[in-house]
Every structure is written in structure tokens, then in C-alpha cells.
């Protein structure tokens, strides 16, 4: 018995090292990336550029919090970009009329409504979430165009814009909000019963159901949370830019999914660490920024990002295979 406790101490340490191995690795990749970029492009490391970067990636980070929860649960939500745009469009229109608070309250209902609708379709009729949210994506995008009538919506009250333009300690407010959102996601996933259920369903929905977990309910809630994040990101974006167009954030869903996957969340669900997702999203944003600074032809930019995503996913699969055969 006594030898066991001794060994247990050591193996716990090893286990935690093994577990954070992925995290250490991604931090390393990030650092290398930053160093290389600052050497290649001196403008990269400037304070202004870093601040811009932080502000720019905040919407993706907020959305990634929700996406991580949905993907750990074993589903996808590709309607996030469209829901973001719809929310911001509605808010942009309403705010001058009904004021900031009321608009906020209404806007934050948009995403959860879409999430709930998709969730019910997914659970009740067994339609894959990828397809279901493709449908809701198109609906949301169309409604955004209807709302704005294809015009740019501006005249957002100045008081509201503090949310997007404030810079406490030089850090852009949207970035702070984004990090807080991720931290909230962290607490939810790792320190609540709900979070454990999310992981359990993603790992094996049969086992979860047989343990008395209401699988459908949790799935619907996950999609609602993701919708909430999308709407929230829309509000933060509106505050930062001060205006909105219906086709804002097109393709955001894939950028976010890519970040989440690079952040180590399993495509099949059940595994992943939301803190590591931050790094995934940052990596994608850095690469985009770098391609801009290096004046790479815009038409080639997606090619580069796509290749990097593929490389990351392949590397992950390779590591899993090696670990599995050991």
C-alpha cells in the first residue's frame, strides 16, 4: 500500500505533464511564430499593430468560446458568422430608437433563439448539426440583409462605443472582454456539472444517456450558448467599428473552427481544453496579420491559412496515432 502512494505521487506529476504537453507545445509554436514574424516584418512587433491585432481577433475569440463548447459536445455550429451579423444589424438599427440597455437585452436573445431552433431540429429529427446550422446560417444572413436593406448601418451612440474603443492599460477593451468570455467558458466546462456532462456526451453519448444525463437538453443548451456568444461578439464588434453591414463576418465560422481545432479540440468531441483554444485562434489571427503585413496577394491568403490548418490537423492525427500504438 505504501509503495502505491509513493508511486501515485510520481504518476500524478507525470500525468499532469503529459496532459499539459499539448499546451506547452502550442505555446512554443506561438512563440516561434511571433519571433519569426518580428524578424521578417519589423512592423509586426509595433505596439500599434499588436493593439490592432488584439482588437481584431476579439470577435473570433468570443465566438470560439461557444464553438469550443459545442464541439466538445460533439456538434458544430456554422451559423455563428451570420448570427453575429444579424445581431449587430438589428442592434445598429434599434439602438438609436430604444436605447442601449434595451437593445442589448434584445440583441442577446437573437443567438440563443437560433441556437435553440437548431438544437431542436438536431435532437428531435437527428439531422447533423453541420447541415442544420448551414440552414440557419442562410436564414440569419438573409434576415441581416432584410434588416439593413443592404445599407451600411451607422450612427451608433458614442456611449456604447466605449465597449469597443476603451483601452484600459493600453489593452483594447474587446480583447479583455474576449478573454473574460473564454474564462467564463473555462469555469463552465471544467468546474460545473454541466461542463462534465458536455464532455461526457461528446465522449460517448450512450454512456452519458445511460448515466441519466438528458443528452438532448444539454445539446440544445450548448447550441444556445454558442448563439449567445455569436450575438455578444456582434455587439462588441458593433461597438468597435461603429457601423455594420449585412455581410460582415462571412467565413468567420471556418476561421473559428480552425482555431478551435488547432487549439486541440477533437473533431469528434469529448476532448479539448478551452484555454488552449485561445492559442489556436491567436495563431490564425497572427498568420492573417502577417500575410497582410507581408503584402501577400489577398487571393493567396486563404491558400496559406488553409494549408496551415491542414498541417495542424495532420500533426494532431499523427500524434494520436503514435500515442495509440505505444
Amino acid at each position: 500500500m505504501s509503495t502505491y502512494t509513493l508511486e501515485a505521487g510520481r504518476s500524478n506529476l507525470q500525468e499532469s505533464i503529459r496532459r499539459s504537453y499539448g499546451l506547452i507545445q502550442s505555446v512554443a509554436v506561438l512563440l516561434v511564430l511571433v519571433v519569426v514574424m518580428s524578424i521578417v516584418s519589423p512592423r509586426f512587433a509595433s505596439v500599434i499593430n499588436i493593439q490592432n491585432l488584439m482588437a481584431q481577433m476579439s470577435a473570433a475569440l468570443i465566438v470560439a468560446a461557444g464553438m469550443t463548447i459545442v464541439m466538445i459536445n460533439g456538434e458544430f455550429d456554422i451559423s455563428v458568422g451570420a448570427v453575429l451579423a444579424l445581431t449587430a444589424s438589428i442592434a445598429g438599427k434599434l439602438m438609436p430608437e430604444i436605447g442601449i440597455t434595451a437593445t442589448f437585452a434584445l440583441a442577446l436573445v437573437v443567438g440563443p433563439l437560433f441556437g435553440r431552433f437548431a438544437g431542436v431540429v438536431v435532437t428531435r429529427f437527428g439531422i447533423p448539426s453541420f447541415i442544420t446550422t448551414l440552414g440557419t446560417m442562410m436564414i440569419a444572413r438573409s434576415l441581416a440583409f432584410v434588416t439593413t436593406q443592404g445599407q451600411v448601418v451607422s450612427n451608433v451612440p458614442e456611449a456604447f462605443r466605449i465597449l469597443g474603443l476603451g483601452r484600459p492599460l493600453g489593452i483594447p477593451m474587446p480583447f479583455i472582454i474576449a478573454i473574460l468570455t473564454i474564462l467564463a467558458g473555462y469555469v463552465l466546462l471544467n468546474h460545473t456539472a454541466f461542463g462534465k456532462k458536455v464532455y461526457a456526451i461528446g465522449a460517448n453519448r450512450n454512456v452519458a444517456a445511460l448515466s441519466g444525463i438528458n443528452v438532448d437538453r444539454i445539446k440544445i443548451i450548448c447550441l444556445m450558448i454558442c448563439g449567445l456568444c455569436a450575438s455578444f461578439a456582434g455587439m462588441v464588434l458593433l461597438a468597435r467599428i461603429g457601423s455594420i453591414q449585412a455581410d460582415t463576418a462571412r467565413g468567420l465560422e471556418f476561421e473559428v473552427i480552425a482555431g478551435v481545432v488547432i487549439g486541440g479540440v477533437s473533431l469528434s468531441g469529448g476532448q479539448g481544453n478551452i484555454l488552449r483554444v485561445i492559442i489556436g485562434v491567436v495563431v490564425i489571427a497572427l498568420i492573417r496579420n502577417f500575410l497582410n503585413l507581408a503584402r501577400i496577394d489577398i487571393f493567396w491568403q486563404d491558400f496559406a491559412t488553409g494549408s496551415i490548418i491542414l498541417a495542424a490537423v495532420l500533426l494532431d492525427a499523427l500524434q494520436k496515432r503514435i500515442a495509440g500504438s505505444r
Binding site: 456539472a193 462534465k196 456532462k197 464532455y199 461526457a200 465522449a203 460517448n204 450512450n206 454512456v207 452519458a208 445511460l210 448515466s211 441519466g212 444525463i213 469529448g270 476532448q271
Partner: peptide
Amino acid sequence: REGILPDFTIAENVGLPII
């Protein structure tokens, strides 16, 4: 297929129904 969650710890597997 209907019992364990392989990557969950022993304690987490035990706690699942009363989480």
C-alpha cells in the same frame, strides 16, 4: 460501449450519474 468513458478518471466515471 455502454459503460466506461475511457478518458475520464476513475472518480469522474463513478460520479457521472450523480454529478
